[in-house]
Simulated assay, not measured.
Amino acid sequence: MLDALRMAFGTLTALPVPAPRRIDRRVAGGAMLLAPLAAVPLGVLGCLVLAGAAALGLPALAAAGLAVGTVALGSRGLHLDGLADTADGLAASYDRGRALAVMRTGDSGPSGVATLLLVLLVQCAALEGAVRAGHGVAALAVAVPAGRAAVSLYCARGIPSARQDGLGSTVAGAVPVPAAAAMLLGLAALSALAPGLAWWRGPLAVALGLLAATALLWRCLRRFGGITGDVLGAGVEIATAATLLALST
């Protein structure tokens, strides 16, 4: 469990943590299952920035942008990079090998840049709406771990890796389905306690966020034949955007 926590925080955040003593399938599965927990410090930091910006009287959109940017920097922009690369892969040739090669180059093409800008715009605009509605901090507190729950979903048993190397091959299928289901249900239950929100809004937003992530997963499985590290990042950003959108009013 300690190695799983170290891998989760070390992989999914920029927080300085000791390296895991060993990494195997069990540790990798535990790390991906604990992805929402690893997001908690990022969510707390983003909420503090959002509350501080509001206290300073900054415009709601500026406050939302600062909070979204803080969360992104807290993960080294890793998930945003994955989103851009996944978008480029989906927009590339229908040949699976060619699409995966495009994703591996690391350069962002027009599709990747446009998708990145669109998703960030949706996240910021949705969080701005939540701030104006008086529950911006609660919305961000729900959305950040909900977005990372997509990682646990994508790494559930039965979902293959698109490659034989890379992060995807290490974590694909490493999370037992019952454990993933329990984590998702627990996260939905905790979101019902978000202050300032009706008890049902948090769970509904989490469900809609994961539904959007599932749609992306289905598309990636058809195009790439499995998941990659980039697909994990794309799932995080799409789930976060959809969750924020569900809480924007």
Rank of each mutant, 00 (worst) to 15 (best):
L5A: 15
A174Q: 04
R96F: 09
A205V: 04
Q123A: 12
D24R: 10
P145F: 11
G30V: 01
M1P: 09
L208I: 03
S152V: 14
A62L: 15
D107V: 15
G82P: 03
G65D: 08
G97E: 15
G10V: 10
M103N: 01
A149K: 01
A246L: 13
A62Q: 06
A150K: 02
T13M: 10
L50H: 06
R219V: 04
C124L: 06
A63E: 11
V44W: 13
P203T: 05
V231W: 05
A114I: 12
C124S: 14
G82L: 06
L193M: 08
G166L: 05
A179V: 01
G209V: 10
G69M: 09
G158E: 00
T243Y: 09
A99L: 06
S161H: 01
I238R: 00
G29H: 05
T105M: 08
G65L: 14
L204D: 00
G209R: 04
R157H: 05
M32A: 14
R222W: 02
A62S: 11
P195N: 07
A192R: 10
V44N: 03
V171S: 07
G173Q: 07
A72R: 05
Y94V: 13
D85A: 14
R148G: 12
S108K: 09
D24C: 04
V236S: 02
W200F: 15
E128V: 04
D3K: 12
S93I: 13
R76W: 13
R21A: 15
R157F: 01
T243V: 12
L197S: 06
F224V: 08
S93A: 14
I238G: 00
P195Q: 01
A146G: 12
V171D: 11
L140E: 00
F9D: 07
G43N: 05
L153E: 15
G229A: 11
L127V: 07
L48G: 04
G229P: 07
A125M: 08
V68E: 06
S169D: 09
W200T: 06
G43S: 08
G97D: 15
L50S: 04
M32I: 02
R26N: 03
G147C: 13
P59Q: 07
A130V: 07
P59T: 11
T70K: 06
A162E: 02
L221C: 03
L211N: 00
G173L: 09
C47G: 04
V27R: 00
P110D: 01
C124K: 11
R104I: 00
T243N: 02
V122L: 14
S111L: 12
L42S: 04
R219H: 03
A138I: 00
R201C: 00
G209K: 11
A149F: 01
G97C: 12
G226F: 05
G74N: 06
G147S: 13
A87T: 04
M1A: 11
P160T: 04
A14M: 11
L120E: 10
A133S: 14
V71Y: 10
D107K: 11
A39V: 12
C124Q: 13
R96C: 14
G43F: 09
P110T: 00
G233Y: 11
S191R: 07
A72D: 02
A67G: 05
G10D: 10
V122T: 09
